[in-house]
Design a protein around this nucleic acid. Structure first.
Lengths: 222, 222
DNA sequence: GTCAGTTAAAAAATCGATTATTTGATATAA
DNA sequence: TTATATCAAATAATCGATTTTTTAACTGAC
């Protein structure tokens, strides 16, 4: 029996896309900043064509603003947009989590536990920052994965990236972080118990608390 | 006083993007078809670089599938995806319409009436097909415009384009079309009366009827 | 006939250079 | 001073050619 292993072929374009996406979400560029394409070319050691293709994709995805004849800019951060993103997360992730609890099977249950465990184990030391972020994203993806709607998942993913631009503005806040980490495990608990209503309520609260963190950082940043 | 008229600068890349978007939504390419980049270059009289940039954007937008080292394909059409898109439209457009009715002002009311009128006047003769489609999109955009969420509007726009790939598969169906056109005016009526509940119900029905049209065409097409 | 290996043609991705447009500095006129 | 015009430098967009990878046709072994 031939294992059809996903090859995950990469191109210069797909690599620089993923790198830039991470750096944009992680706040390595200033909000509102105009991107100097030549500088990017140098910094990431990449050719102009793959770079421009990546920038075009990021603009279509919403992590860059493209203006004809004047290149690419990093979107500004605004209170109104943070509110918008958080409110959309509440609606869409809540909906998705409910549906996931209805449809998720035993495999999902196992993946939930695994994802929560990996996230817990990943210490948040400064060097492993990016690793924790990856596991955190992966955990939230797993929560809603079996919701049954490809488009809903797509929108949620996009909103998460947007939200993280705000959440990751400042330094870590260990106290609040602990509360949020605890909620991760409680979310798994309630999902396994198929307690849709309580799960939804906790998800709402989780997003709301995250929003408060993001807002605090946004205000400190401005 | 200097009128700061939006110049709407266009580039080869932005032009071919818009053209391809229309053609993809309008069904000028077969579902599942592999795009021959050289043929596109010839057909649209455009250079390789702007063409590739447009294709990358369309892939990020969801109107194309990009596979590393093997170019771009038109997404296939499936019953499951049509159901997904329609169900997401129900949720998101319903939500947006309710919010628009809460927040929309007198300017919006005027724009609604204007958009509905333009749509009614546009006859659906075969040559003016594309013009009617533009006015129809514009009308639905206007309905939800003051919902207060940029991201919600963005998702709805995307879902409309996806939905239209199914709706526009076959020839026109004048009888059903008449019902749907009538609903457009009723939607405006209820919006002006600020009857949120009835408006939402009608919007749901409108989307559901459109879904039935799209489904019929999808099944006839397969 | 079917399967793996080989290779020529086709296609995708990328590069290096060119062209077009914008930006910002300077000059000039109101 | 303020506004407008001019022009050089910087940047964005595009082109044409090259490199890399895939596809498909062909070959011979089983």
């Amino acid at each position: 029996m031939n294992q059809h292993l996903q090859p995950v072929i990469s191109t210069a374009s797909s690599r620089i896309y993923e790198t830039l996406r991470r750096d944009l979400v992680g706040g390595r560029f200033a909000a509102g900043e105009k991107l100097a394409i030549n500088a990017l070319k140098e910094h990431y050691h990449v050719g102009l064509s793959p770079l421009r293709e990546a920038l075009n994709k990021l603009a279509a995805y919403g992590l860059l603003i493209q203006e004809n004849q004047r290149g690419f800019r990093v979107p500004t951060l605004t209170r109104a947009e943070l509110d918008d993103i958080a409110s959309m997360r509440l609606e869409l992730e809540g909906m998705a989590f409910e549906r996931a609890i209805q449809h998720g099977d035993a495999v999902w249950e196992a993946e939930l536990l695994a994802a929560a465990h990996r996230l817990k184990r990943a210490d948040m030391s400064l060097e492993k920052d990016e690793e924790w972020e990856t596991l955190h994203s992966q955990f939230h993806r797993t929560l809603v994965a079996p919701c049954g709607s490809v488009w809903l998942l797509r929108f949620i993913e996009q909103l998460h990236d947007q939200f993280d631009r705000y959440r990751r503005l400042g330094p870590k806040m260990p106290t609040v972080r602990q509360t949020l980490d605890d909620q991760h495990h409680q979310l798994v608990e309630l999902a396994l118990q198929r307690d849709t209503k309580a799960a939804r309520a906790l998800m709402d609260d989780h997003i709301h608390k995250s929003y408060q963190v993001a807002l605090k950082r946004y205000e400190a940043h401005a």
